[in-house]
Amino acid sequence: MLTTPTRRTHGIPLPWGNAYGLARTLLALGTAGTLAFSSTATLFRPVVTLGEYPLCKGMASGGAFCLVPRGQFDLLRWLCVAVLLLVASGWRPRITALPHAYISFSVFSGIAIGDGGDQITWILSLLLALVALGDNRRWHWRTPAPRTDDEPTSRATRFRALLGASAWTVARLQMAILYFQAGAAKLPHTEWADGSAMYYWANNSSFGFPEWLRPLTDLVVYSPVGMAALTWLPIALELALAASPVMSQRARWVLLPLGIAFHLGIALLMGLWSFALAMAAGLLLLLSPVGHHFPFLSPDRSRKRQTPSCAPASPGDASPATPEPAAAGLTSLTRLEAPSI
């Protein structure tokens, strides 16, 4: 007699797809770029009213650049770049998780030219470390091992899955709050309300649009309709991204390329490349299902699969063969029984 596996009502998604791996890679590349393409003298210098960076006060004193003499900053900077490139490669996420979070903290707390992207990177890399510590794959690009609903799992595995899924959820809430604050904070200001704010940003001495793009951007900047759209569309997109946790997954997939294009546009026009990479990583966590796996990023996606069958393996076998889930599917559909805590 064939039996049907008991349905588990208290399940959690497995978080170890390559979507979170791609987010880790983007975060690591952003920080590596900051360290590699900025000189030590630029990163660590005096700031008026604050002092010489790194300040090494309070919690910041635990940063890597506070633990070595100033003369060794160059060596430490390149060592951090090497570790970050290893993180970006996806090798052994369980091993590289904490070094990644520590370097992100050291850069955010230690450099004199930090921006919002460095803070976002530190927060997200810390949360993703909780996901990566439970990831026993050799590479974070690999297809997760398929599981069936009736396959027994250890208490440790259930706990690691719960910890990782919870950290991902907190990251999603963090990004939603960030976008809400970014959109809502603009509304009371006259320049954003009347559609002229981007005119002033375009001509800002520090973050203005690059000269080589001026022939193209001036067509928009000096057009009333173009300038209004350039000012109001980002607000609408930011508020939509803030509301994305309550939207359908179909709507989130529409918002993902729009959000990434938005931040790439900011990077191109204002030069904030590390910020763009940090926000793109945040968008992946905000808009992808927990544990999502992109099939086009899997190095082993061409591996042969067994043909699903519901027939018994042999005439004397009383149990049906269990279909193997396609590796290209969402790992968020694979559930684990939640531990009782």
Rank of each mutant, 00 (worst) to 15 (best):
L35V: 13
F37L: 05
F37C: 01
S38E: 08
T40E: 08
T40Y: 01
A41Y: 13
A41Q: 15
T42W: 11
F44Y: 14
F44S: 12
F44Q: 09
P46Q: 11
V47L: 10
V48R: 15
T49K: 10
T49E: 08
T49M: 04
L50G: 12
L50E: 15
L50S: 15
G51E: 08
G51I: 09
G51M: 06
E52T: 14
E52C: 10
P54S: 15
P54A: 15
K57N: 13
K57D: 13
K57C: 11
M59Q: 13
M59C: 09
A60P: 09
A60S: 14
A60F: 02
A60I: 07
S61C: 13
G62Q: 14
A64K: 11
A64M: 08
F65W: 10
F65H: 12
C66Q: 10
L67N: 14
V68W: 10
V68P: 02
P69K: 12
P69L: 09
R70H: 11
R70W: 03
G71S: 09
G71N: 07
G71F: 01
Q72M: 04
Q72Y: 06
D74N: 13
L75A: 14
L76F: 05
L76H: 10
L76K: 12
R77N: 05
R77E: 04
R77T: 08
W78F: 07
L79I: 05
C80L: 03
V81N: 04
V81G: 04
V81W: 08
V81P: 06
V81Y: 05
A82D: 04
A82K: 05
V83R: 09
V83C: 04
L84H: 02
L84P: 00
L85F: 12
L85H: 04
L85P: 05
L85N: 03
L86D: 05
L86Y: 10
L86S: 08
L86Q: 10
V87Q: 00
V87K: 00
V87S: 00
A88W: 00
A88Q: 02
A88H: 01
G90Q: 01
G90W: 07
G90R: 05
W91C: 07
W91Q: 06
W91D: 03
R92N: 03
R92W: 11
R92A: 07
P93H: 07
P93S: 09
R94S: 07
T96P: 00
T96W: 09
T96A: 09
A97H: 03
A97T: 06
A97C: 06
A97V: 02
L98W: 13
P99W: 04
P99S: 06
A101Y: 04
A101C: 08
A101M: 06
A101Q: 09
Y102N: 07
Y102K: 11
S104N: 15
S104V: 09
S104Y: 06
F105L: 11
F105E: 09
S106N: 12
S106P: 03
S106F: 03
F108I: 00
F108N: 02
